[in-house]
C-alpha cells in the first residue's frame, strides 16, 4: 500500500471538518474526492499534507507513519500538493518558483550559498535542468522567465502542478485544479493528469467540482458530505448511488 489513510478526524472548535476518513491509494492510481462545498474535502487534504495534524487516525506512506510529522517533512517524505486558491511565490520567476520546490533536495552548503563553489554550480545546473523538464511536461517552458502573476489563470494552475511535481512526490494532491478554467483548458488538464499518472507513476488524489473531469480520469471516487464519507466506488457505482444523488448530485443539478 502506498498511501494508507486510516480513520482521520479533525475538528475546529465544534465543527467537525472531517470525520473518520479513510482512503487507500496505490502507485499509478487516480482517485477523485467529490462532495458539496464545505464537505471537508480540502480539510482532508490539509490533514494528509500536514497543514493540520489529525485529531485522530493515522496516515501511512509506504508503511511509514507520517501522521504527526511537520508539513515540510511530509512533503519531503513524498506527498506534495497544489492549492485551490493559487499560491505561487511572488517575486520569483516561473522557473524559480519550480526550483523552490526542488531546492530542499539540492545539496550544497551555506558556503555555496555565498560563493559560486563548484558544488553549487553543478547542483544548480542539475536543478535547473530538472525544473525545466517539469515545466516542459506541463507546457510552460516558453514562459520560464515570466513572472507568474503576469500569466493567465490557466497557466498559473499548470505552474502549481509543475511546482508540486518538482517536490518529487509519491502522492500528488490536486485541489480543484480545474477551478476557473474554460472547457478547452479542462480538456487539456484532463489529458495532462492522465499523462502525469502514466509518466511519473505517482498516485494522484484529485478534489474537483467539475464532474466531467473527475468521472473521466478517476478509477475510484470518494464522496464526502458534512465531513463524512458517504460513498466509495468506481465512477459508475458512485453515479448510481442513491445516497450520493440525494446528497450531492441532486442538489448540484438543482443549483445549475
Amino acid at each position: 500500500m502506498l498511501l494508507d489513510v486510516k480513520g482521520i478526524s479533525k475538528s475546529f472548535g465544534g465543527v467537525k471538518a472531517i470525520q473518520n476518513f479513510s482512503l487507500t491509494a496505490e502507485k499509478g492510481d487516480i482517485i477523485g474526492i467529490i462532495g458539496p462545498n464545505g464537505a471537508g474535502k480540502t480539510s482532508a487534504f490539509n490533514v494528509i499534507s500536514g497543514v493540520y495534524t489529525a485529531d485522530e487516525g493515522t496516515i501511512l506512506l509506504d508503511g511509514k507513519n507520517i501522521t504527526k510529522m511537520e508539513q515540510y517533512q511530509i512533503t519531503r517524505e513524498g506527498i506534495s500538493r497544489t492549492f485551490q486558491n493559487i499560491r505561487l511565490f511572488k517575486g520569483l520567476t516561473v522557473l524559480q518558483n519550480v526550483m523552490c520546490a526542488f531546492d530542499p533536495l539540492s545539496k550544497y552548503s551555506i558556503l555555496g550559498g555565498l560563493l559560486p563553489t563548484p558544488k553549487r554550480i553543478s547542483e544548480e545546473r542539475k536543478g535547473r535542468k530538472m525544473c525545466e523538464h517539469y515545466l516542459e511536461v506541463v507546457g510552460l517552458l516558453p514562459y520560464k522567465d515570466e513572472r507568474p502573476e503576469n500569466m493567465a489563470y490557466g497557466l498559473q494552475r499548470r505552474l502549481e502542478i509543475a511546482r508540486a511535481i518538482a517536490c518529487e512526490p509519491k502522492v500528488l494532491l490536486l485541489d480543484e485544479p480545474a477551478a476557473g478554467l474554460n472547457p478547452t483548458e479542462v480538456k487539456d488538464l484532463t489529458e495532462l493528469i492522465e499523462r502525469l499518472s502514466k509518466d511519473f507513476g505517482f498516485a494522484i488524489l484529485l478534489i474537483e467540482h467539475r464532474l466531467e473531469l473527475v468521472m473521466g480520469v478517476s478509477q475510484k471516487i470518494y464522496v464526502l458530505n458534512f465531513g463524512k464519507t458517504i460513498a466509495v466506488g468506481t465512477p459508475d457505482e458512485v453515479r448510481e448511488n442513491p445516497e450520493v444523488i440525494k446528497a450531492y448530485l441532486g442538489e448540484e443539478e438543482k443549483k445549475c
Binding site: S49, G50, V51, E70, Q71, Y72, T75, R76, S80, R81, F83, R87, L88, F89, K90, G91, L92, C100, A101, D103, P104, L105, R163, A166, C167
Partner: peptide, 13 residues
C-alpha cells in the same frame, strides 16, 4: 516571504 504555507508545502523548512 511570499507565502509561508506554500513554502512549507514545497518541503521548505
Amino acid at each position: 516571504k511570499s507565502d509561508e504555507l506554500a513554502a512549507k508545502a514545497m518541503g521548505i523548512n
